[in-house]
Amino acid sequence: MVDRKKVTYRQALNEALHEEMAFDENVFILGQDIAGGAQNKAPDEFDAWGGPFGVTKGLVGKYGKSRVRDTPITEGAIVGCAAGAAASGMRPIVELMFIDFLGFCLDQIMNQASPMRYMFGGKAKVPMVMRTMIGGGFQAAAQHSHSCHSLLVHLPGLKLVTPSTPYDAKGLLKSAIRDDDLVIFVEHKGLYDTKGPVPEEEYLLPLGKGEIVREGTDITIVAFSKMVLIAYEASVKLEQDDISVEVIDPRSMSPLDEELILNSVRKTGHLIVVDEDNPRCSIATDVVALASSKAFDSLNAAPKMLTPPHTPVPFSPELEKFYLPNADKLVELVKETVPAHA
């Protein structure tokens, strides 16, 4: 029996997929290695992987190879295929294994699925989810460590969510699957083994609504995905310096819970945005621009960002450690930003 207080992010996602496939027979999953072994006959052989990190493990045995559909390595075709299936009555969940492979399917996202509803006069529904994975920290180097979600936030017509906890992962994935627009569901590969409470009973979380992870009065830290954990860790450390940090997890980048962020900034007068994407033209610059343009009078100092430098993700552990944001860097940045208490 799973301790419901210690459910992993991976397990939470798996539960959401199980529940939604049982809830709606039009829900199906397609992606590379999501069962892993489609060519085999015996169930334990065709469920070899359950995705590269085991998120889809056990689904094929219950729902069959048609609804849990291994595909060739053909990102453009499977994302477009999902759009076509969504436009004709199904609710596909397509897995883009690593967000680094986005280039292969970008046309299907930016010219096909995301503008469809608008360019067809509001009559077309495209109820599809694209699950994908971001994140460094695994010495996977420049082509398997991207967190380039801001590229997609740039596009109108799609939703993009970035769950940071098992609870959020399950509730947001269930909502994403039931949503009638394209939802990009961004998981962080460094979160799959994290644990947290997930209720036994069913629940949904609204897309586009963030939460205050920790209340504080001196500074607002807006953090996304795994960076929420770093922000929380920094906020605990900063207690010793008598700095009260408010940690905001918007949970979605599109749509963005602007009011939640602005209300917090208006209260604290300081803002740092933490994200793992490249710094230029990013969700971090977007949130800084939001606060600067809509809460300027409340700001006591220039808003700041903690992101990696504007370089590709390096390989060597020493280089990658330098590259990635962490709690210590955040603590230093907060101390630079907030004046010392007298």
Binding site: F28, S66, R67, G76, A77, I78, V79, G80, C81, A82, A83, G84, A85, A86, A87, S88, G89, M90, P92, D107, Q108, N111, Q112
Partner: peptide, 18 residues
């Protein structure tokens, strides 16, 4: 988009098959 609709037709065919 030239060729942009090819996988969409494949998806509609998959939908019909399923």
């Amino acid at each position: 988009i030239v060729a942009g609709s090819t996988p969409i037709a494949v998806g509609a065919a998959l939908s019909a098959q399923m």
